[in-house]
């Protein structure tokens, strides 16, 4: 089974009882949604607001690649 290395960053309420940033080895072909399921973010009371990979907005079905940085935010705003 081929593995790839990714970085996961969490923000705002998603950090509570989880982490700010973590490197992980994952199975090739894993989607961003799979990671959200593993972290319990898919069931979080605050739905996903923004998902970025390497500083660009992506959708949950994005298939992660070697070296990717995945960032997950609940809905946030300000100004």
């Amino acid at each position: 089974m081929q593995e790839i290395h990714i970085t996961i960053k969490l923000f705002a309420q998603y950090r509570e009882e989880r982490f700010k940033v973590e490197q992980r080895k994952i199975k090739k072909g894993t989607s961003a949604k799979d990671i959200m399921d593993v972290l319990g973010i898919s069931e979080h009371k605050l739905p996903l607001g923004v998902l970025m990979v390497n500083s660009k907005h992506e959708k949950e079905d994005y298939i992660l690649q070697e070296g990717d940085t995945l960032a997950l935010f609940p809905k946030v705003g300000g100004g």
């Binding site: 923000f11 705002a12 500083s55 907005h57 935010f73 609940p74 809905k75 946030v76 705003g77 300000g78």
Partner: peptide, 23 residues
Amino acid sequence: NPISGEGLPAFGTNVLVNILNEA
């Protein structure tokens, strides 16, 4: 609303630093 009801009271407008930085 998740922003006006949850995000803004919890972290204030300054919650934007990280998301703008990430973007």
